[in-house]
């Protein structure tokens, strides 16, 4: 029996049906749970749509086809399929990390579906190339794929056991699905290859909607040079620096991330 697009990607929709849609796309390594501290706030003013990329989290892994998902184009098509299924227009697309480039490809493919792009920690190319500083070498990425092989077990480990007590933690945990951040190891490894070996620099100038780049001040995955490159090559893009470490501002600095997105969508 055919599984619908919405089931296939575990699409969750909240907020007002008539409000402008805001679609959140998670990056490599986790799933839609990554937006937990940011997305709910926007449900007051937007129709918030969350989903898992195929192969991640609670998506229908049986629908994963290695050949089809060997590039970001298919991931972008999935985003468009979700937009069509929900009949979304004027979408504010918020993509983290590799999903920033997935948003670029989707916007180029169907310019009318999107109103704005928000890129959280984008990089158009992770591997250094001449004067371009992506931050990594080919060998680094090969090593990452090997590392993921040795983490086969860890990536499938279900959320379980005791959690250190904290004020809201028990409550927060209850929201979390048992499939949280689980990825089938072979798919995670291929997604890593597609992500970190990608090069979308040539696509950036083709973006035709207002774009916000959020750059973490200390991001080991997407260095400032990567964010600046995206800003300089997406026509009219603006860049905001979020003072935080790591690659996930939406987790480590949610209020700053929310404020930056809000200011951008209100302009």
């Amino acid at each position: 029996m055919a599984v619908s697009v919405l089931e296939r990607h575990r699409v969750r929709v909240t907020g007002h049906v008539d409000a402008q849609p805001m679609l959140f796309a998670h990056g490599f390594g986790c799933d839609q749970a990554m937006w937990r501290l940011v997305a709910p706030v926007f449900a007051e003013d937007f129709r918030v749509v969350l989903f898992d990329h195929l192969g991640s989290g609670g998506s229908d892994v049986d629908a994963y086809d290695e050949a089809a998902y060997s590039g970001l184009e298919r991931y972008a098509q999935d985003v468009l399929d979700i937009c069509h299924e929900l009949d979304l227009h004027d979408v504010v697309f918020v993509g983290h990390s590799v999903s920033s480039m997935i948003g670029v490809l989707a916007q180029i493919a169907e310019p009318d579906v999107f109103a704005r792009l928000v890129m959280v920690g984008p990089s158009a190319r992770y591997i250094d190339d001449g004067d371009y500083v992506g931050g990594f070498s080919e060998a680094d990425i090969d090593e990452l794929l090997d590392l993921m092989d040795s983490n086969h077990l860890g990536w499938q480990e279900p959320l379980s056991g005791m959690v250190m007590p904290g004020p809201e933690l028990a409550e927060q945990r209850a929201e979390l699905d048992a499939s949280f951040c689980r990825t089938r190891p072979d798919i995670a490894r291929r997604f890593a290859g597609v992500t970190f070996r990608g090069d979308n620099r040539a696509d950036l100038p083709l973006v035709s909607v207002p774009t916000l780049v959020l750059q973490n001040s200390n991001d080991p995955i997407a260095p400032p040079s990567a964010g600046a490159y995206v800003r300089d090559h997406v026509p009219g893009a603006v860049l905001e620096v979020i003072e935080t470490s790591g690659h996930c501002a939406h987790l480590s600095a949610p209020s700053e991330t929310i404020a930056a997105i809000r200011a951008f969508v209100l302009t």
Partner: peptide, 22 residues
């Protein structure tokens, strides 16, 4: 370097969201 990528894309998010990683 590969470990750093893993650390920032999977380990830290998992810790933040689920409280532990094994």
């Amino acid at each position: 370097v590969a470990g750093r990528i893993f650390h920032d894309t999977h380990l830290m998010p998992t810790l933040e969201l689920s409280g532990r990683i094994d």
